[in-house]
């Protein structure tokens, strides 16, 4: 593969929430890069900071409690964190866009689907008139909605969950973005519908050279869709690897434990490994490695110092003292 410049580069991103009980470090020093046409998975449990990473990239951190206090988000070399609100409005939807989990809450229930599609087109293209409706129909057929000419007049409640999520997808790609962030985008869909949707995203990616970030808690989605994976725990990326290396040789004890605790469709397991305890509260993080209290390999050093990044293979890094 020829050397390419990354579309998106995130460096040492920090997003903190200031609450009465203290500072919650939701995203605490996250760095990664995303190549054109690549699919990156960010896996983690709830509260690990994966969604907040996405919102920080989009500049949509809930204010005033949350604030991105440090780092850089370079999209084609431009730092998004330095942009004003109105500049960000131009970038969101055109260069970078996001699909959320629940299509019922991301679509407006009182407008027709066509209305919402045309609205985004009008915002983005300054185009007017009849051409817009045709473009909207064209977009709906791109996301494989049957008979788009009639569907365009439907309200969201007249569609099924899978179809609604397709409409959200159509709105997302309407501005021909370079980066698409899918935050648990298929979690609320049924198995066979989820499969169709993932297949659709693959095709769109092939046609447009889109880069996708999948934010998920499901290793299955990672295995099926992603080229590279980042595992997050307590606001930090603890392991970063090409997808096969992660599955063949999980290096961080958290990744390893998580993989062993997931039941398997492909074979019977005798007894699942259960990780003891729960993820730590982010405002009361332990000193040292946040996984130390649950880690089976914990030793003295883990309790005092946060581990440095250790290279365990080509493009494969993990933050763990055990690996040194």
């Amino acid at each position: 593969m020829a050397k390419q410049a990354p579309v998106l580069e995130v460096q040492d991103l920090r997003t903190y929430f200031y609450t009465r009980t203290g500072v919650v470090k939701a995203v605490d020093g996250v760095s990664f890069s995303l190549m054109p046409g690549e699919t990156l998975g960010i896996v983690g449990e709830s509260g690990s900071g994966k969604s907040m990473t996405a919102l920080s990239i989009m500049g949509l951190v809930p204010k005033p409690a949350g604030k991105t206090v440090g780092g850089k988000v370079l999209l084609d070399g431009e730092d998004l964190l330095q942009k004003s609100n109105s500049e960000m409005r131009q970038i969101r939807g055109r260069k970078i866009c996001m699909i959320l989990q629940d299509p019922m809450t991301s679509l407006n229930p009182v407008y027709t689907v066509g209305n919402q599609l045309i609205e985004t087109l009008r915002m983005r293209e300054d185009a007017r008139g009849h051409g817009l409706k045709e473009r909207a129909i064209d977009l709906l057929s791109k996301v494989k909605i049957a008979s788009p000419e009639t569907r365009i007049g439907n309200y969201p409640h007249q569609m099924s969950g899978g179809m609604r999520q397709r409409v959200v997808g159509a709105i997302a790609i309407s501005g021909s973005p370079k980066v698409l962030i899918a935050d648990e985008a298929t979690t609320s869909l049924d198995a066979t519908i989820q499969y169709q949707y993932l297949q659709l995203l693959r095709e769109l990616q092939k046609d447009t050279g889109l880069s996708i970030i999948f934010i998920t808690h499901d290793f299955g989605i990672v295995a099926k869709m992603c080229d590279r994976v980042a595992v997050m725990y307590a606001g930090k990326m603890v392991e970063f690897a090409p997808v096969r290396d992660l599955f063949n040789k999980p290096s961080h004890p958290y990744t390893e434990a998580l993989m062993r605790s997931v039941p398997n469709v492909d074979e019977e397991v005798d007894k699942l490994y259960a990780i003891e305890g729960q993820p730590p509260a982010l405002d009361k993080l332990p000193v040292g490695c946040p996984f130390a209290p649950r880690c089976p390999y914990v030793f003295d050093r883990c309790l005092h110092e946060y581990p440095t990044s250790v290279t365990v293979g080509e493009n494969h890094h993990a933050h763990c003292w055990k690996l040194i």
């Binding site: 519908i193 290793f219 990672v222 469709v265």
Partner: peptide, 21 residues
């Protein structure tokens, strides 16, 4: 079963995509 997400990236399933809902 074919739509169930794989447990490893190397697992290839028989591709049975259902049309419609």
């Amino acid at each position: 079963i074919s739509a169930a997400l794989p447990s490893h990236p190397d697992i290839q399933r028989e591709d049975i995509v259902l049309s419609g809902e």
